[in-house]
Design a protein around this nucleic acid. Structure first.
Length: 890
RNA sequence: GGGGGCGUGGCGGAAUGGCAGACGCAAGGGAUUUAAAAUCCCUUGGCCUUUGGGUCGUGCGGGUUCGAGUCCCGCCGCCCCCACCA
């Protein structure tokens, strides 16, 4: 028989056409139960990278598996197409953002088809199309009516390089812009906010229904982000002016130990007190110098505790004690009330501050060793008995006494229980062009006027010059900005800020159920049919951004009566980040690896081989910056010769460390790349990108191909029954076959451990390869069919080709998942380890003849062992629980 | 400082409390070939060995157990998230 090479490019194209023709991913199997699989949709950057490949391959495996399992599967794809890169490209090149975006979508859609990912393309949409973003505006108006969106002046994060504000969630690495990596400053601005903080408790409560179905890490991150803390609010009074100063504390048990009060430099009281203080000007200067705003989070964390005494005092309501009032740089205006009651004896930060400025320290919790403040070298924060605390002195457990103390504060009218959240409102405004215009008009007479619903959508103007001028280009569009006030008809100005693009992704999962509707946002029946999403798949980096916003948005839509559910994603799987080393030149920011040169410190070129080896070591993390220097090397930028730093980071286009899957697909085909992505490590684990091992995936596919080709003549006809009696090899084959079915099924249903599922398929393949000649034709058919089916969601084109060679007309995905035969998968011999003095020395194989139940066989083994050791010097023979025979020898 | 995760060969990684290292990569050897590629076969944790095997071995120290990579306690190290959060 002529050897037939596996021609992936022909075969992959052929099956992609077939699936399209047959409408494999259309959602018209109404007789089946629904299953909605959603992959986080991409920003159309222009090219897919390996992170996408992992994400979408995982999703596609789920889709195809669910098809085989008899579901009506919804698998849509769309584009998160608003955002900065398109606008920045426009500024750089003059190409309009919509044009840039459309072009990128074209290219990426082609890559997706080529990868063989199955989507219902009839549902495709892009968020930058007015058909989509008009609903952002509509929701905004609905939220506005309900008071769920507000405009307020607040400290916000400002990215100078992106010329826009950022939400808290978009500030990363202790003060860097999530997009461009430059330092974020804080300033006061009047901006639009969604009242996310109103939903803090509900978001938290929702974790109960998500637990088990969402990764623990994501829930933990969200909990941390919401940052609930329970305590009390207690109102102090400024002695000199009578101003009330409420403070939030989680430690009301230490109220009697307050020795000074600290307020944030931005606290309104600062200005008020400065106005009546002889040293007012000095105070204002000192406060200005300590402001947290305009300082990056990193600097905030590193700077030393500093403060200035105001000369004023506050009265502690619980005991009437007068303590000095300080302005302190560690007090944050953004948390609690902006004031901290300082208890240096029992709070490390207060302790350091008190030591620095010589403030008194009063013990109110007795340490276990009974020591006094004078003996301490740090604050005492552990539990103990309460002392020096008025009515609570003598309580043995300070933490346990907190509820009682709060009740007492309440009864005395001195304070009340308070729950404080770290979660703040979602800053919605962006001073950029390429986003959804906020449907608001400012009128000198009528103030803030929402655009009336019939006037929607507010269309993003196309006649914009991007290459000239600073700031938001919308400000320069006269036709956009100048409008008539909808209320009074006089000239007015349109809001030029656009919405954060996270608004788009907060509800896109619903729109896929009814993507073309232009009368209403969606048809309720269609939403009921598909939502919520049964399986959502995406990167863990969205844990505190998209995944909080989207949950909030569903709850808000639920409150508006637009949806019946509160949680958008029933199950969530987060794949690990695909990382690769990225290089940063000190002067030209991120640069491609090809632009980096290695040199010897003190001069001297490297030969090519030496340099390649060096880069290899950097890439697989076996050489860090320190090691590089120690060995006498340095990296420089090929452009300007400046020093280059490197770090391991998620692959992304902006960091110029992406790997384009096209090259790999050219060489090996889509299936090999798909198989490779899932073969080696569990998909939730972070991985450093390498192409080592892709040969193995290629070999696996070819081995299987040759096996199928060599077997088609030998294999029993479709539908042949298995013989009733099988020899050892054939029953072994069937055992491995059904163990493979089980493993792959469990891996998909459970933890997505495809590496072990693939390993099991490989094992079966290897076993069949060595025993093929002894395989019964019907068993051979069963085994081949199971391998092909079990692996089909991962390498679908290949599987379908094999399926047709095995004599089937229909696509493998038109059929069903293989039945698991537990009886066939069972080991026929019970293996009982025999342990002598605690070490396994032998293994006893007990055949089914000895009994059908495990207990019977164990008894048989016990008897057999006793026979064997009879008369020898043996202390005891024990059949241990489980299956283990222990022999203790004297 | 708080929270989450992890620690197993040269590498990615397997192991319902029961033969540690599945499966694969890389490496080495052999077959085939004029040659190379491809393919096929073998070896591959350390040490010892009379080649039968023996022995040590899952970051470190204890514990539970007939039996621990796995469970418990205490360290050490790494990664991620949050962080002057009152």
């Amino acid at each position: 028989m002529a050897e037939e090479e596996y021609n992936f490019s022909l075969i992959e194209k052929k099956w992609q056409k077939r699936w399209e023709r047959d409408g494999l991913f259309r959602t018209d199997r109404a007789d089946r139960p629904k299953f909605y699989v959603l992959n986080m949709y991409p920003y159309p950057s222009g090219v897919l990278h390996m992170g996408h490949v992992l994400n979408y391959t995982l999703g596609d495996v789920m889709v195809r598996y669910k098809l085989l399992r008899g579901y009506n599967v919804l698998s849509p794809m769309g584009w998160d197409s608003f955002g900065l890169p398109a606008e920045n490209a426009a500024i750089r090149t003059g190409i309009a953002p919509h044009e840039f975006t459309e072009r990128n979508i074209e290219r990426m859609r082609g890559q997706m088809r080529r990868a063989g990912w199955g989507y219902d393309w009839s549902r495709e949409f892009a968020t930058s199309h007015v058909d989509y973003y008009r609903w952002n505006q509509w929701f905004f108006l609905k939220f506005y009516e309900r008071g769920m969106v507000v405009k307020k002046t607040a400290p916000v994060n400002w990215c100078e390089s992106c010329q826009t504000v950022l939400a808290n969630e978009q500030v990363v690495n202790g003060g860097e812009c999530e997009r461009c990596g430059s330092r974020v400053a804080q300033k006061d601005m009047n901006q639009w906010f969604y009242k996310l903080s109103d939903y803090a408790e509900r978001l938290l409560a929702g974790h109960d229904r998500l637990r088990g179905n969402w990764p623990d890490a994501v829930l933990a991150m969200q909990e941390e982000w919401i940052g609930k803390s329970v305590g009390a609010e207690v109102t102090f009074t400024v002695s000199e002016t009578g101003d009330a100063l409420p403070v939030f504390t989680t430690r009301p048990d230490t109220l009697w130990g307050v020795t000074f009060m600290s307020i944030a430099p931005e606290h309104p009281l600062v200005r008020k007190l400065a106005a009546v203080s002889p040293d007012g000007a000095k105070l204002l200067d000192a406060a200005a110098a300590m402001r947290s705003m305009g300082t990056s989070a990193k600097e905030l964390a590193e700077r030393e505790k500093e403060g200035v005494c105001t000369g004023f005092h506050v009265v502690n309501p619980v005991n009437g004690a007068e303590v000095p009032l300080w302005i302190a740089n560690f007090a944050l205006i953004t948390y609690g009330t902006g004031a901290v009651m300082s208890v240096p004896a029992h709070d490390q930060r207060d302790w350091e501050f008190a030591k620095k400025y010589g403030l008194p320290i009063v013990k109110v919790i007795e340490p276990a060793d009974g020591s006094d403040v004078g003996d301490w070298d740090r604050a005492h924060v552990d539990a103990g008995a309460i002392v020096n605390s008025g009515p609570f002195t003598g309580k043995p457990d300070n933490f346990g006494a907190i509820p009682e103390i709060v009740d007492w504060l309440n009864a005395q009218g001195l304070g009340k229980k308070r729950v404080n959240y770290r979660l703040r409102d979602w800053l919605l405004s962006r001073q950029r062009y390429w986003g959804t215009p906020i449907p608001i008009i400012y009128c000198d007479r009528c103030g803030i006027v929402p655009v009336p619903e019939p006037d929607l959508p507010v269309i993003l103007p196309a006649d914009i010059d991007f290459t000239h001028g600073q700031g938001n280009p919308l400000l320069r569009s006269k036709s956009f900005v100048n409008v008539k006030c909808p209320t009074c008809g006089r000239p007015a100005k349109r809001e030029t800020d656009t919405m954060d693009t996270f608004v788009d992704s907060s509800w896109y999962q619903i729109r896929f159920a009814d993507p073309k509707n232009d009368a209403v946002c969606w048809d309720r029946r269609k939403v009921r049919q598909w939502l919520p999403v049964d399986q959502y798949i995406g990167g863990i980096e969205h844990a505190t951004m998209h995944l909080i916003y989207s949950r909030f948005f569903m709850m808000a839509l639920h409150d508006l009566g637009l949806v019946d559910f509160e949680e958008p994603f029933t199950r969530l799987f987060c794949q690990g980040m695909v990382c690769k080393v990225a290089f940063r030149c000190e002067s030209c920011k991120w640069i491609a690896a090809s632009q980096v040169k290695a040199v010897r410190i003190g001069g001297g070129e490297l030969d090519e081989e030496e340099e390649a080896l060096l880069f290899k070591r950097i890439e697989n993390q076996s050489l860090d910056a320190g090691g590089l220097e120690k060995e006498g090397y340095a990296l420089v930028c090929a452009g300007d010769g400046g020093p280059v730093h490197f770090e391991m980071t998620k692959i992304s286009k902006s960091k110029l460390n992406i790997v384009d899957p096209d090259a790999m697909m050219d060489r090996f085909g889509a299936d090999t790349v798909r198989l490779y992505m899932l073969s080696d490590s569990p998909p939730d684990r972070m991985r450093i990108w390498t192409e080592d091992g892709i040969n193995g995936s290629w070999r696996t596919i070819n081995r299987l191909w040759r096996l199928v080709m060599d077997s088609v003549e030998k294999v029993a006809p479709v539908g042949s029954a298995l013989p009733s009696e099988l020899d050892r090899i054939n029953s072994g084959l069937r055992r491995k076959t059904h163990q493979c079915v089980k493993k792959v099924t469990d891996s998909i249903e459970g933890g997505y451990q495809f590496n072990t599922a693939i390993a099991r398929c490989n094992e079966l393949l290897n076993f069949l390869r060595t025993h093929r000649d002894a395989a019964h034709p019907a068993v051979l058919r069963e085994t081949l069919e199971v391998i092909v089916k079990a692996i089909s969601p991962i390498i679908p084109h290949f599987a379908d080709e094999c399926w047709s060679r095995l004599g089937y007309e229909e696509s493998v995905f038109a059929g069903s998942w293989p039945e698991y035969d537990a009886e066939a998968a069972k080991e026929d011999e019970l293996v009982i380890p025999v342990q002598v003095n605690g070490k396994v020395r032998a293994r006893l194989y007990v055949s089914p003849d000895a009994g059908t139940s495990e207990l019977e066989r164990l008894a048989f083994a016990d008897a057999r062992i006793r026979e064997l050791v009879a008369g020898k010097s043996v202390a005891r023979v024990v059949v241990a629980p489980g299956r283990m025979v222990n022999i203790a020898v004297n």
